[in-house]
């Protein structure tokens, strides 16, 4: 019973990623696309957490932590580029 519920929740979470992709594709300005990318990164951590329960393996949460840090660095550098500054300021 628990496994079926987790399956359904995982599919819902993957569907939400497609909503983010809609915003990334359609976003009127570049900032909208970056907001979509930011939320996408957080949703992937949720997917990793549910997968860690289903497979009972620890390394999947490691992937989630690495993904959130990398997406953070990516968003920060893109935001700095938007602001019109050099990367070493």
């Amino acid at each position: 019973m628990t496994e079926q519920i987790l399956d359904i929740l995982l599919y819902i979470q993957i569907g939400l990623c497609f909503l983010c992709l809609y915003r990334i594709v359609r976003g009127p300005s570049i900032a909208d696309r970056m907001v979509g990318l930011d939320i996408f990164g957080i949703l992937v951590v949720g997917i990793c957490a549910v997968l860690a329960i289903q497979t009972n393996k620890m390394f999947i949460l490691d992937i989630g932590i690495a993904y959130v840090i990398l997406s953070f660095v990516g968003v920060l550098s893109l935001a700095k580029y938007l602001e019109g500054r050099k990367l070493n300021e």
Binding site: I30, A31, E83
Partner: peptide, 9 residues
């Protein structure tokens, strides 16, 4: 950072 970047952009 995103909000500030978007405003300055």
């Amino acid at each position: 950072a995103l909000a500030r970047g978007a405003y300055w952009f």
